[in-house]
Design a protein around this nucleic acid. Structure first.
Lengths: 129, 129
DNA sequence: GTATGAATTAGAGCGCGCTCGAACGCAAGC
DNA sequence: GCTTGCGTTCGAGCGCGCTCTAATTCATAC
């Protein structure tokens, strides 16, 4: 198995940062279409699989629940006619992510204030001793 | 029980956005110091409890694991001498949050590209039909 | 005095997203 | 031919952060 255009599960795990276990899990729950198999019955991941995994990873990093990713994968399988639905799903998710970012930024400001406060405490204590 | 300076668990839940269950849970696991009780044995939350809960909520929103919050609570109980340690913990967390925000922003850019791509597809399809 | 409603406790259960274990298959290298 | 290593499947288990149930207590309203 030295086909340069496909990769074993170990190579794919390495490239995607996922574990082999997770890759099988993703296929099992329908996030991945059934992956091609070599003559020995082992999985061979194609470039398209890698690209799709990269996209899934971005969705996951941005906190999309797996059930929504499955919905997206399902739409994709259903073909071009679902493009508007996919756009809709993605747009909603983007809005969620934006809100998440501003929430984080707001909390970060509060954290910074708290940190400044602690620094002040330490500095005044230190100078007094 | 109409003490204006303390609140029942229901009022506290309302004010913090947490449930009464969660408030008891937080106390149980040591995120909250044992809450004062009224003469009837029920919890009475003081202003300081509210402020602390607000802070905890910010830590939670920014994804701090409960075990770290417990660590922080423990340091706080140990008094002023732990100020440097708390500052350290908080500073580390802030760095984590910053990284998280940039990660999200990067993913958001990728999502935006994907969305633009989908929009292009739809527009060209629509104009052709 | 009885019904209602808010609180209490201890402990079980849940949804999520993996993560791991067991038992097995198969091919290559010694 | 036997070990090594990488893969397979099925299904159980786990860590997290709650979330809920059951049984009980107590104060107030009627």
């Amino acid at each position: 198995m030295n086909d340069t255009s496909t990769r074993s599960i170990a190579e794919t795990a390495e490239l995607t940062g996922l574990t082999a276990h997770t890759l099988r899990y993703y296929e099992r729950i329908g996030l991945l279409d059934p992956v091609d198999r070599g003559p020995d019955g082992r999985r061979r991941f194609r470039d398209a699989d890698l690209a799709w995994l990269g996209f899934l990873t971005r969705l996951r990093v941005t906190g999309m629940p797996i059930r929504d990713m499955r919905k997206f994968a399902e739409l994709r399988r259903a073909g071009d006619v679902t493009t508007p639905a996919r756009l809709e799903l993605l747009s909603r998710h983007r809005d969620t992510v934006r809100r998440r970012i501003t929430d984080l930024a707001d909390c970060l400001d509060a954290l910074d204030s708290k940190i400044d406060h602690y620094r002040t405490l330490i500095t005044s204590t230190t100078s007094r001793s």
